[in-house]
């Protein structure tokens, strides 16, 4: 049900463009103003959210330790990347986390067990897929974003051209098929299907979990449609996009409706981003269980709001129990 709501909403967005551009000819609105507003909301919203998190202090260093601590015993070997004590090792831990999804990978120790009939069974298959498709999804997305930068730069920097040519390495179909297009759609579909089909994941999913997946799928499909089926006029599109980045917005004549659909959906994604779970892009860097060294026992860390609460003092304790303490032969501070 929640999935259906989200799907309907994405369709509604499509209709908005079809009416807005196709029927009402609001090209300026959909080609210029909405993208500008979306970009502004995205940037300001993102910065605000990160600022808002950063504003709250980190009173304690609470890393989740994933291995042996630093020990003064030479034969006890520290697991430096899972239980770092230095900034360098913490950075490495974060890099593993952000670039390779290390914690998610922990799930994936795929071990072969025998089932009751003696046949081999791979444990944790689903979790392994989650890591694989998760990483495929994110890297495809990143590559696609970088590739698109060729529409916003003139001359196009070399590395963008390079990524572009690597991505179309297979040289199949015309225009050549991008690997990441396929990967993104496949990965997003997997993540969506997992949510819909695995009962325990469906149980904990919210509409807000389906919506971004549907939206990203719609963006990918509209992009693919533009490139391979509608075969839109890329020169005209680049004219428009360059107009946007140089703040000389202008709508060329040969831009088809499919582009407006694509652009509008991207704008919606940007608008939605700062208010949603997609902010995990920023949040992952701020997670105190990962981005801090396990070193509170080694060096002092300051809690900015430390309340310095006084403990029940020894003097008060002794006042309570002085007599029996003396009787029992325990030393006391004030023998009266």
């Amino acid at each position: 049900m929640k999935a259906l709501y989200s799907l309907f909403f994405v369709f509604a967005l499509l209709l908005v463009v079809l009416f807005g551009v196709g029927a009402a000819h609001l090209n300026m609105l959909f080609g210029v103003w909405i993208p500008y507003v979306a970009m502004a909301v995205f940037l300001l919203g993102f910065i605000y959210r990160v600022y808002d998190w950063a504003k709250s202090p980190v009173p304690f260093r609470i890393p989740t330790t994933g291995g042996q601590q630093w020990s003064v015993l030479p034969e006890v070997k520290q697991n430096r990347w899972d239980n770092p004590t230095t900034v360098r090792d913490t950075v490495i831990r974060m890099a593993f986390e952000v670039l390779l999804f290390r914690s998610l990978f922990r799930n994936t120790k795929s071990e072969v067990y025998k089932n009751e009939n003696g046949g081999p069974v791979v444990a944790y298959a689903s979790a392994k897929w989650l890591w694989l498709f998760g990483i495929l999804f994110h890297y495809s997305f990143l590559t696609i974003v970088i590739r698109h930068m060729r529409l916003f730069t003139e001359p196009v920097p070399g590395f963008i051209t390079l990524i572009d040519s690597l991505d179309s390495l297979l040289q199949i179909a015309a225009p050549t098929l991008y690997l990441t297009d396929v990967a993104l759609v496949a990965a997003a579909t997997f993540l969506l299907m997992r949510r819909i089909l695995a009962p325990q994941i469906r149980y904990l999913s919210l509409a807000a979990d389906y919506f971004p997946l549907f939206l990203i799928l719609a963006i990918a499909i509209s992009g693919i449609y533009m490139r391979y089926i509608a075969k839109v006029d890329v020169i005209a599109i680049k004219e428009l996009t360059m107009g946007l980045v140089t703040f000389h917005p202008h709508i060329p004549a040969n831009v088809g409706i499919s582009f407006y659909i694509h652009l509008f959906l991207v704008s919606i994604l940007l608008l939605y981003f700062p208010f949603s779970k997609l902010m995990h892009l920023g949040g992952v860097f701020l997670s105190p269980t990962r981005n801090l060294p396990n070193d509170s026992r080694v060096r002092h860390h300051e809690n900015p709001w430390n309340p310095k609460i006084k403990c029940h003092s020894y003097a008060d304790y002794e006042d309570d129990f002085r007599e029996p303490m003396i009787e029992a032969g325990l030393p006391v501070d004030k023998a009266e």
Partner: peptide, 8 residues
């Protein structure tokens, strides 16, 4: 804020 409910 940042849980994506991946179910891991």
């Amino acid at each position: 804020d940042i849980c994506v409910r991946c179910g891991a």
